[in-house]
Design a protein around this nucleic acid. Structure first.
Lengths: 123, 123
DNA sequence: AATATATGCATGATATGTCAAGCAAAGGCA
DNA sequence: TGCCTTTGCTTGACATATCATGCATATATT
């Protein structure tokens, strides 16, 4: 069951202050179908339509996919796990991805500097 | 246009050495539709079906989504960009994610150790 | 007050995804 | 050799996604 995709889409549209017909003219998706999506009557949109909406609302596409139930909930760990599995990263790189999730800003700065230092001494 | 989703699915099935009817019984997707997908006659499957196939073939789900044209090609940078945009990471964390992509094994080790060291001195 | 426009939704129509049934060919078995 | 089973595919049927049209209501305009 999609996790409130409709509510999310209506919020995005209302925050932008536009009508169903405006979204229709900008995305090519009919106002009737947009209404059905927002009201939860239609729940299984083609991802291509979600992408158009994400672009129009300047909203994160993976977030809309997750709300539609096509991806796990939008926690970084979940996506990192999917990526690690998809593009064949090493186990250690998965660890790295997981480790950076909860760094503070200062820690992020330090790690970035350290990585740049490591790369700078490659030659 | 999906990037050879059909060829990918046929390769996965043949590598596993199973028939269309075996996949049907394991995934619930009809052998006729599987045939159409493999031959490129059907090109826009519901992601829920792709997920079932990914699970059955033990194949990366994001990879199948990319082949269907629902996600950008399976480069890590693309996914990291989508994630950064989806779960509201800071600009610096996006940089971090991008930076770890091309680290060597030794560099990964060093960075992991450094992160653990940073975390250990939080108290 | 009357008319025009904008808006969200209902609904039947159309397009497309997916299925059930059946066909032809190949392979297995007695 | 004959029969049965398996297999991939075809095709019409069915289910669902999406659209075009129109309705009712609210708002804007004259």
């Amino acid at each position: 069951m999609p996790d409130q995709l409709g509510a999310k889409l209506r919020r995005l549209r209302q925050n932008k202050g536009v009508s169903l017909r405006t979204v229709e003219s900008e995305t090519g998706i009919s106002n009737a179908y947009l209404s059905q999506l927002e009201r939860g009557v239609a729940t299984n949109p083609n991802p291509i339509k979600l992408r158009k909406l994400a672009e129009y609302f300047n909203a994160p596409y993976l977030d809309l996919l997750a709300h539609a139930g096509y991806l796990p909930s939008g926690a970084r760990e979940n996506y990192q796990g999917l990526i690690a599995n998809s593009v064949g990263s090493s186990r250690k790189e998965s660890q790295l991805s997981s480790s950076i999730v909860d760094l503070t800003n200062d820690e992020e700065n330090l790690v970035l500097q350290y990585i740049e230092f490591l790369k700078s001494r490659r030659n």
